[in-house]
Design a protein around this nucleic acid. Structure first.
Lengths: 148, 148
DNA sequence: GCAGTCCGTTTCGTTTCGAAACGGACCCGG
DNA sequence: CCGGGTCCGTTTCGAAACGAAACGGACTGC
């Protein structure tokens, strides 16, 4: 258990494929064969990553048919909670690599408006730019080591 | 250039070390030796990752002394713009791996209040849960392929 | 019986990684 | 001037991870 939550997160989902698998799960691609086709990931790696995600409680393996029993992979609440992180990664890609505009827009299901993501100060009622973010040791800090 | 901004982002910074290096740069750890010590990364990999980040325009190599010329590594605006992504990754780690509370708090520099991060709908003036996020093809979509 | 689908596992050559040694440019104290 | 000490890399080499492809097993449908 690293002393830094970023490190903890990356230890769980921080390899070349895992976040892409999770992206697909968010998109509704849930089956082994579909993930394999869509991502181009080697089958043995896909097996491995899915098992790992299940062990970590990020993904759930649920049967979608009997005879033969076949399973699909679904996000648990813990997995669904990665949504903001994927949104943030996507927005950065949008800003720096999408010359023709974002390939995908995230919109509010009730009104269709494109969504925004921001860091905000609940007491000042304002958005906070990276420049105005400071970090402080929190309650979970043992001793040494800084973080972010 | 992948058709998905998440894939584009991960192609740039999505390996085991790069995001940790960037985290350290945010924290003000800027020198080769310091990064090496703090991260425990192999020296050859650190060299490689830093060069790569410079090539990508995420990091800048600036001299901090002559005789001998020594450089430190600083975030460019493109690099600093990864802040929301690191914040999101950190918050997930906080929520799921920090039993004793977050090891690090992000606070507003002006008032010291711990910050929040949310996805919001600008027209409804509300926060939006992952459940209410839909994705749509955006202007940068060529043909095929979905995303998130 | 034979093809087709779906989900894995095994195999094996290639790439990447990690630890440690090496080297070069300097400063400093003796 | 010589032997550390610092800082930043590069080289080397065995271990680990990856990727492509073949294989196998449990079905369905013709």
């Amino acid at each position: 258990m690293p002393t830094c939550s970023i490190a903890a997160t990356l230890e769980a989902v921080g390899d070349r494929w895992t976040l892409l698998i999770l992206r697909d799960l968010f998109r509704g691609v849930r089956r082994f064969e579909a993930l394999h086709r869509d991502l181009g990931i080697a089958r043995n790696l896909l097996t491995d990553r899915l098992h790992r995600l299940v062990e970590l409680g990020i993904v759930q393996r649920v049967p979608y048919q009997e005879r033969p029993v076949r399973h699909e992979y679904r996000l648990t609440p813990k997995g669904a909670d990665l949504s903001p992180a994927l949104v943030a990664l996507m927005r950065w890609g949008d800003r720096w690599y999408a010359e023709d505009g974002p390939p995908t827009l995230l919109v509010h299901d009730q009104c269709g408006t494109p969504l925004e993501q921001a860091v905000a100060c609940p007491s000042c009622h304002t958005d906070v730019t990276p420049h105005h973010i400071r970090s402080r040791p929190g309650p979970g800090r043992l001793t040494e080591g800084a973080t972010r």
